[in-house]
Write a protein that binds this DNA or RNA. Structure first.
Lengths: 356, 356
DNA sequence: TTTGATCGTGAAAACGCTTTCATAACTGGG
DNA sequence: CCCAGTTATGAAAGCGTTTTCACGATCAAA
């Protein structure tokens, strides 16, 4: 005789007024005629419970609409399935694509993403542990410039942490970095196919920015190998903005230095600025000036001429960060790793006169 | 005799090996010689405890480095200080600026932000309550097209919810909407100052998109008022992409219909597409074709001619959403509101021949 | 002084879950 | 038929908070 009907009486369908108390594991246990332990097992490790019981309990769970209280659960397990991600107040494109990649991956792995764009202001930081330390199982933080306090905070909280854009393995942290070398070299060599080395320029962002540093270095190296010494004026630092690109180009145009030259920009905006200024001065791109950008943001394919640029797999960076973080969360003693993602030159119209 | 030195002995500075258990409220209570209740009060409502005691407890808290366990706290209070925000897989710009606005405001109000860009796939949704229901205190969800299941899910979870971009007051939900009417009217009238009504066009995104619908409607109204009937071909639907803009423009150019015309695009990308196609066909913008975009994304000021466009206060939308949500979280019985944010025409170069 | 209020504090009961440990009910090999 | 080994379950001990309630002490008014 199947006793499935046993909990027939105590069915309170909760059509009660006001804000009804949510159904707890106890309610389920009572209704199913089992202990809370069993209900818990049905939910978390079904193989530990007899199929018949499991089915019955599942039924009750469904009909009662039971949802485990995540806080109680987290209190016991010390895991919240939430990952924090702190990005500098970086520009739109960048930000969102990386975030999307991270979000998709997190979701895939059963985690949630807690964001914080401005985790870097000292004020906030001091106040009370800027990020939801204590809420999150791990933290992915992007560091584009030296920033001691942030990662120190993470270390102090002994929170699994993965660093984006900086190799901090020597500090014992997992990291995800973009291999600027590949793309930069590719781009530089690409320029060199149609421009003499002495006429090539690198226009970077802030001098402190890690990426700019690396790109400048590889640019100089590649140039040096191919055509001897690199003049100081061939590498410039400024900021990641269109205006800086325009400004730099205008100045160079003044010296008559851009006709027949090649420019590798620190990002796409700078590149667009350079193109803009050149065109304003009547210097045709790509015919008289070759320009290559960096990042392959949406902007690159929207402008005319379409911008040749070095593609960074932003979504992949985000996803890798999450993946690495989850690994570390699940095994705090895993070897610290550094994922290096490749960059790749995408040739469009701004650097090549060939009919595509 | 001040007994501040009392807890001198039991100071375990936790230089223990391995992963030390974090200090709990009990540890603090013991070390300070008070009950846990008092410690709790010191932390949450200091005015309830005698200044002397408070000071002493605070001292212990500092020296022990006590951090309340947020899960335990949330378990009791049923509040996590976390807000969810679900955005459709919308395009970069949009996404990130809104998010930033929301993040800043959330932070200001002492909340954290849990994001989810792809909360809308049915698969995920069914699986287990796509969003971290149970983790979050409230949910801000952006709905740009009819989407029953999502807000039904929220309603069922009886979770404080605010809807972005759709007025759902009649369903009893707070909402934040953008007043498309203002900007659309402004833009249309602006076009009408230099173009006859019969030569004005609206090129929208998807026909189902709420914003596109409203903009199309107001466009037609404004035109109708000023210059009689509006022909069906003056309003077109497609999608929010540059390609659609190009495609539409090319087709119109074929009919010779664009010379001397005015175009209001559904977003900036479409506008850029139109301009692109016109220029390719040798039709100068703005001289022979006036174009106005929508959204005022970064793109608008990067292209040439700089794009006249209708500005949407995205960051404000995000901030308002959070603000409204927090209000509702703190007072579930507050009247349901609908915040309406103004849009505003920004005249740049693509629609005006005057020397700026 | 007596008398209510007010104030500061602690004991203890939740909150909803996981998990250890023990128990009882079955296996099946000897 | 007995005993060791599974297997399925329940009782109960937490997890780290908040919060109610009660109790003694202090205080202002009578």
């Amino acid at each position: 005789m199947v006793c499935l009907a046993m909990p027939a009486h105590p069915n309170r369908v909760s059509s009660a007024p006001g804000h009804a108390r949510p159904v707890s594991i106890q309610d389920v246990a009572a209704a199913a005629g089992v202990s809370t332990a069993t209900v818990s097992r049905v939910v978390n490790s079904p193989d530990l419970v007899a199929p018949a019981t499991a089915a019955r309990v599942q039924g009750v769970i469904q009909s009662l609409g039971y949802k485990p209280n995540l806080f109680a659960k987290a209190l016991m397990t010390r895991k919240s399935q939430v990952l924090g991600i702190a990005l500098p107040d970086i520009h739109g494109e960048f930000y969102s694509e990386l975030l999307r990649g991270a979000d998709v991956e997190a979701r895939r792995l059963g985690y949630h993403l807690l964001v914080s764009s401005e985790a870097h202001t000292p004020a906030e930081q001091e106040r009370q542990g800027s990020l939801a330390f204590g809420l999150i199982d791990g933290l992915a933080v992007m560091i584009t410039e030296p920033n001691e306090s942030l990662w120190r905070e993470a270390r102090d909280a002994s929170l699994p942490t993965v660093v984006l854009d900086t190799d901090l393995r020597e500090r014992g942290m997992d990291s995800i970095v973009v291999d600027n070398a590949i793309g930069t070299r590719e781009a530089t060599e690409h320029l060199l196919t149609s421009v003499p080395g002495a006429r090539c320029y690198f226009v970077g962002g802030a001098r402190e920015n890690f990426d700019t540093q690396q790109r400048a270095k590889v640019f100089a190296q590649t140039l040096g190998l191919t055509s001897g010494e690199v003049r100081p004026d061939q590498v410039a630092y400024g900021q990641y903005s269109l205006e800086w690109g325009e400004q730099w180009a205008r100045q160079m145009l003044g010296h008559g230095a851009l006709d027949g030259a090649g420019v590798l920009a620190g990002n796409d905006e700078i590149a667009v600025g350079v193109i803009r200024a050149a065109q304003d001065a009547g210097l045709a791109v790509p015919e008289r000036l070759r320009v290559v950008g960096f990042d392959d943001t949406r902007l690159a394919s929207l402008v005319r001429p379409r911008l040749s640029t070095v593609r960074i797999p932003l979504a992949e960076v985000g996803a890798a960060a999450v993946r690495t973080l989850v690994r570390r969360v699940q095994d705090r003693d895993a070897a610290t790793t550094c994922v290096r993602l490749p960059t790749k030159l995408v040739v469009r119209e701004s650097s090549s006169v060939e009919r595509r």
